[in-house]
Simulated assay, not measured.
Amino acid sequence: MATPLTADDLLRALREEGLTVHEVRDWRHHNRNTKGQWGPMHGVMIHHTVTEGTDYSVGLCYDGHPDLPGPLCHGVIDKKGEVHLVGNGRANHAGLGDRDVLEAVINEDAELPPDDAADTDGNRHFYGFECINLGDGEDPWPEAQKTAIAKVSAAICRAHKWTERSVIGHKEWQPGKVDPRGFAMDGMREAIKRRLADAPEGPEGPVSSEEPEGDGRPVPPKPQHPPYEPFPGSGFFHAGTHSPVITAMGERLVAEGCGHYEEGPGPEWTEADRTSYASWQRKLGFRGKDADGVPGQVSWERLRVPNS
Rank of each mutant, 00 (worst) to 15 (best):
A2I: 09
A2H: 12
A2G: 09
T3H: 01
A7K: 09
D8G: 14
D8K: 05
L11W: 03
A13D: 06
E16I: 02
G18V: 05
W27S: 06
W27F: 06
N31C: 02
N33H: 00
N33V: 02
G36W: 04
Q37V: 09
W38A: 04
G43P: 02
M45T: 04
I46H: 14
H48V: 04
T49Q: 02
T51Q: 13
T54N: 03
D55R: 15
D55T: 15
Y56N: 12
Y56V: 11
G59A: 14
G64N: 08
H65S: 09
D78T: 08
K79T: 11
G81F: 10
G87Y: 03
N88W: 01
G89W: 02
G95C: 06
D100C: 02
E103Q: 14
V105G: 07
N107D: 15
A110V: 06
E111V: 14
E111W: 08
D115W: 00
D116N: 15
D119G: 05
T120K: 00
G122Q: 13
R124M: 14
R124Q: 15
H125W: 02
Y127I: 07
F129W: 00
G135M: 07
E138K: 14
D139A: 01
P140C: 11
P142A: 14
P142Y: 12
Q145S: 13
T147L: 08
I149Q: 12
I149K: 00
I149G: 06
V152F: 09
S153M: 07
A155W: 09
A155Q: 08
C157Q: 04
R158Y: 07
H160K: 06
K161I: 03
K161F: 03
V167L: 02
G169N: 06
K171C: 15
K171G: 14
K177N: 06
V178Q: 09
V178C: 09
G182R: 12
A184C: 01
A184Y: 09
M185K: 03
M185Q: 08
D186I: 11
I192H: 12
R194H: 11
R194E: 15
R195H: 10
L196V: 10
E201C: 00
P203C: 02
P203G: 00
S209A: 10
S209W: 01
E210D: 13
E210L: 15
P212E: 13
E213Q: 14
G214R: 00
P218G: 10
P220H: 08
P223V: 03
P227K: 14
P227W: 03
E229L: 08
P230R: 12
P230L: 04
S234E: 15
H238Y: 03
H242W: 01
I246T: 08
G250V: 00
G250W: 08
G250Q: 07
R252C: 15
L253E: 12
V254K: 11
A255W: 03
A255R: 12
C258W: 01
Y261A: 06
E263N: 00
T270D: 10
A272I: 01
T275L: 13
S279E: 15
S279C: 10
W280R: 09
K283F: 04
G288R: 12
K289W: 05
A291S: 15
D292N: 14
P295T: 11
P295F: 04
G296N: 13
S299R: 04
S299A: 15
W300C: 10
E301T: 13
L303F: 03
P306Q: 08
P306T: 07
P306A: 03
S308H: 10
